[in-house]
Amino acid sequence: MNQPLAYIHPQAKIARNVVIEPFSTIHKNVEIDEGTWIGSNVTIMEGARIGKNVKIYPGAVVSSIPQDLKFDGEETTTEVGDNTVIREFVTVSRGTIDKHKTVIGKNCLLMAYVHIAHDCIVGNNCILANAVQLAGHVNIDNWAIIGGSSAVHQFVKIGAHVMISGGSLVRKDVPPYTKAAREPLSYSGINSIGLRRRNFKNEKIQEIQEIYRNIYLKGLNNSKALDIIELEMPPSKERDEILNFIKNSDRGIMKGYKN
């Protein structure tokens, strides 16, 4: 690998067929796996662990020091999964003493100007549209999509297969399989289109709809709704995932929509 116009620290571990375009900087304690492409003017800082076939576009900064005043120089990492695409001017901070890592899963798309702060965990197959901003300690499960210019409060959890409207202020946890929109952010139905695209059967979609009717559309408080779901609906992977998500929500879940 001959990159005369890129700076690569001699201690960085770069697979042989990685392409690093001119004017990019690769710091020490960085690992980049096979087939990855690093565009021009990219900065990969200490602690980065970049998977296979990742594409990082010009201006991106990966594994920068956290924007957290409590950070005291501890050795932490940023992990980027295989086949993920990081577009122009995305910034990703490495972890702090809390989780010691920031993680972006496989097959994700981070569009231009996304910011992922320290200790965030982003699952596989997630899409963060342009200028989405994640504060620290945010957890996003697999297959979630967040619309452009949305801002996610620190410690928020976003469930699997969620669709969040562009421009949203996400202050509360968003349960799996739902759509979220309006201000303040509210339940807007289940993500039935996304579920069908991912080969969920109609019966399963109807089961998820019935679960959320109890939670959001019958005027019940959360504890009463969960009791009814546990008593009246047979156990399933999706039912239990929703119940566990809500029971373990520290910030509370988004509210139902009211006119």
Score class of each variant (00 low, 15 high):
Arg196Met: 10
Met254His: 09
Asp250Trp: 03
Arg239Asp: 04
Ala48Gln: 10
Ser165Cys: 04
Glu203Ala: 13
Met233Pro: 05
Arg251Asp: 00
Asn107Pro: 05
Arg213His: 12
Ala6Gly: 09
Glu203Lys: 10
Asn248Val: 04
Glu34Pro: 06
Ile65Met: 11
Asn53His: 15
Thr76Ala: 07
Gly252Lys: 13
Lys172Trp: 00
Pro175Arg: 08
Val92Ile: 15
Arg197Glu: 00
His137Met: 01
Tyr177Ala: 06
Leu217Pro: 00
Val92Thr: 04
Lys201Ile: 12
Val18Phe: 01
Gly194Gln: 05
Thr178Asp: 06
Ile50Cys: 03
Gly256His: 14
Gln209Tyr: 05
Ile127Lys: 05
Asp33Glu: 15
Arg16Met: 13
Ser168Gln: 02
Lys13Cys: 13
Gln154Ser: 03
His27Ser: 11
Ile104Thr: 06
Ala48Ser: 09
Asn191Trp: 01
Thr43Lys: 12
Arg198Cys: 05
Ala117Gly: 14
Thr76Leu: 09
Gly167Glu: 06
Arg251Trp: 09
Ser150Asn: 09
Thr77Ser: 12
Ala160Leu: 00
Pro176Glu: 07
Val90His: 03
Val61Cys: 09
Cys108Ala: 02
Met163Arg: 02
Gly105Tyr: 01
Ser249Tyr: 07
Ile246Leu: 08
Tyr187Ser: 05
Asn107Asp: 13
Ile228Asn: 02
Thr102Pro: 10
Ile97Tyr: 14
Phe89Ser: 13
Gly256Pro: 03
Val85Asp: 02
Asp68Phe: 02
Ile140Glu: 03
Ile65Val: 15
Lys237Asp: 13
Leu220Thr: 00
Val103Pro: 02
Asp227Ile: 01
Asn221Arg: 11
Thr25Lys: 08
Thr25Ser: 09
Trp143Asn: 14
Glu230Gln: 14
Pro176Thr: 04
Cys108Ser: 08
Trp143Ile: 03
Asn130Asp: 07
Val132Met: 06
Phe23Trp: 12
Tyr212Leu: 08
Leu169Asn: 09
Glu74Ala: 12
Gly123Gln: 01
Asp240Gln: 13
Leu128Trp: 03
Gly256Glu: 08
Gly159Asn: 06
Pro176Tyr: 01
Val174Asp: 05
Tyr212Cys: 12
Leu5Pro: 01
Ile211Val: 13
Asn248His: 08
Thr36Arg: 10
Ile190Thr: 08
Asn222Asp: 06
Gln67Met: 14
Asn2Gln: 12
Ile8Ala: 07
Met111Tyr: 07
Thr25Cys: 10
Tyr216Phe: 14
His100Arg: 14
Lys247Ala: 04
Lys247Arg: 15
His9Asp: 15
Lys101Glu: 13
His161Gly: 05
Asn244Asp: 04
Val80Ile: 15
Asn29Ile: 04
Asn130His: 06
Gly51Asn: 09
Asn199Ser: 15
Ile228Val: 05
Ile20Leu: 08
Ile211Gln: 09
His137Ile: 00
Lys204Cys: 09
Lys258Ser: 07
Ile253Trp: 04
Gln209Cys: 00
Gly105Asp: 02
Gln206Pro: 00
Thr91His: 06
Ser192Gly: 10
Gly219Thr: 06
Ile127Cys: 04
Ile229Ser: 02
Glu74Ser: 15
Asn124Tyr: 11
Asn222Pro: 00
